[in-house]
């Protein structure tokens, strides 16, 4: 019985640069995604499409151009008014999904993060790579969604491209914060259901996506202000309809960028801590 020979190359001993490490993590996800994209197509593209049809078209037909609706949307057709906000909402929603169970799985079930950090890639690079990938995917499905909106007549002008960028920023801010939280979760018991029911769902409902937030009772307003989705929705809608004003827009962007920076720092730290133990 002849033993098969294996050629052994000497290790290069090289470690990737900080950006390179993040890039490798993104590449890992991209390779996985090329084989499994179908599974995410439903949640990332069909889901917002269904919301668009149900509310933009169906509910839009109900309110028509009635005076109450016109007062709320400033005279814009409801579908056109809703579409850019749905873009932001679906970014925030898919950010929340991608940043919960998949993250726990990477640490605990499939343990791919442990495998990655066993090589020369650092914990922080793993965390930021995962976050970057979430952003890439979000941008991709957002772009497809813009086309879908256009087909249904929900696009008024080129401003929707800026809306897409605003949606991406919103989604990344949400993803960074939730990814950081997920890095501290040890088992699925309470954490994620509570997060979805008490944070994500109220965020999607109370951020001015379907109706202006001034229609909500006074006491809900503080909830609105802390919602990243509200800030993102204001920018995305303002850009698409051309109704934005400089100072408030800068304020909203500052909040989103601030949340993203805080979230990213937390992701880098918490991934490092969890993978180093």
């Amino acid at each position: 019985m002849a033993a098969p020979t294996v050629s052994v190359a000497r290790s290069t001993g090289r470690a990737p640069t900080a950006l390179g490490g993040v890039g490798r993590v993104v590449e890992h996800h991209w390779r996985w995604y090329r084989r499994n994209w179908r599974a995410t197509a439903v949640s990332s593209i069909l889901q917002p499409l269904l919301f668009l049809l149900a509310f933009g078209v169906g509910f839009g037909a109900l309110v028509g151009s009635g005076p109450q609706a016109a007062a709320a949307t400033g005279g814009t057709p409801y579908l056109v008014w809703l579409a850019p906000a749905l873009l932001a909402m679906s970014a925030a929603q898919s950010a929340a999904f991608d940043s919960t169970y998949p993250i726990l799985s990477g640490f605990k079930w499939q343990r791919i993060y442990l495998a990655m950090s066993a090589g020369p890639i650092t914990g922080a690079q793993v965390g930021l790579g995962v976050l970057t990938w979430t952003g890439v995917k979000m941008f991709g499905s957002g772009a497809v969604y813009v086309v879908v909106i256009a087909i249904f007549g929900g696009v008024q002008g080129p401003g929707i491209v800026v809306s897409l960028l605003a949606a991406l920023l919103t989604g990344l801010a949400v993803a960074s914060l939730i990814t950081a939280f997920a890095a501290t979760v040890e088992n699925e018991g309470n954490a994620f259901s509570a997060l979805f029911r008490f944070v994500v769902i109220p965020m999607t409902l109370f951020s001015g996506t379907f109706f202006p937030v001034d229609r909500l009772p006074e006491w809900v307003q503080p909830v609105v202000w802390v919602s990243p989705l509200w800030h993102g929705t204001e920018v995305a809608r303002g850009a698409a309809l051309g109704t934005w004003r400089l100072l408030p827009t800068l304020g909203h962007l500052a909040v989103l960028v601030g949340l993203l920076v805080v979230g990213s720092v937390l992701v880098a730290r918490l991934f490092t801590r969890r993978l180093a133990r």
């Binding site: 509910f59 309110v63 709320a72 769902i201 409902l205 379907f210 109706f211 202006p212 229609r215």
Partner: peptide, 13 residues
């Protein structure tokens, strides 16, 4: 949450 948001918000439209 759906009832609160949609009932008051969408209801106003």
């Amino acid at each position: 949450f759906y009832l609160l948001a949609m009932g008051t918000g969408l209801g106003s439209l």
